[in-house]
Design a protein around this nucleic acid. Structure first.
Length: 162
DNA sequence: GCCAACGTTGGC
DNA sequence: GCCAACGTTGGC
């Protein structure tokens, strides 16, 4: 059975790791996620060629700033085994890893960010996980419809103020 | 297994 | 910096 491409949204604080950082590096292992629901998505559902919306949280203008892609299946997050890492988890063993990550690649930066404020003000996105009150899941699925609509918004020409 | 206490997320 | 919402921990 051929699997359909999935769409995801990843949150990151730009002061910690921004889309520009990803652009400069080309790709990065999405480590440090310590939430079971988010882990399950990476471990069980993400696959190469899935598309990613890159979201900047905890910043002056929270919003989706660009696009990435999933480059690998889920695999154990190595930071859980590293006592020097802030993400070290003493309960994890190599035989029974507790946390997983995927490799994430850079695709593009939007010509204009799609701000959370805009998404919240549009009925099109009222059923999106991101716009729900109190939603703080850092790895979340996105519908194909929402993904396409956001691409369109992000790729719009920036209107000139004349 | 319940649930209070605690720690974290993230918008504002 | 505040604090509401949420997730996790651990005593019982």
């Amino acid at each position: 059975m051929t699997q359909k491409r999935n769409y995801w949204l990843l949150k990151s604080e730009p002061s910690t790791y921004s889309l520009t950082d990803l652009k400069n590096e080309g790709e990065t292992p999405w480590t440090g996620v310590r939430n079971y629901q988010a882990r399950n998505f990476m471990r069980d559902s993400m696959k190469p060629d899935d598309s990613i919306l890159f979201y900047h949280s905890n910043t002056s203008f929270p919003g989706i700033v660009g696009v990435g892609e999933v480059r690998t299946l889920g695999y154990p997050d190595q930071t859980q085994f590293d006592p020097d890492s802030e993400y070290f988890d003493p309960r994890a063993t190599k035989k029974q890893p507790r946390w997983f990550c995927v490799m994430v690649g850079f695709i593009q930066t939007f010509s204009q960010p799609v701000l959370l404020k805009s998404l919240k003000s549009s009925t099109t996105f009222s059923d999106m996980t991101l716009t729900q009150k109190g939603s703080r899941l850092s790895v979340q699925p996105v519908s194909a419809e929402h993904f396409k609509a956001i691409l369109k918004l992000g790729r719009e020409e920036v209107k000139k103020v004349s």
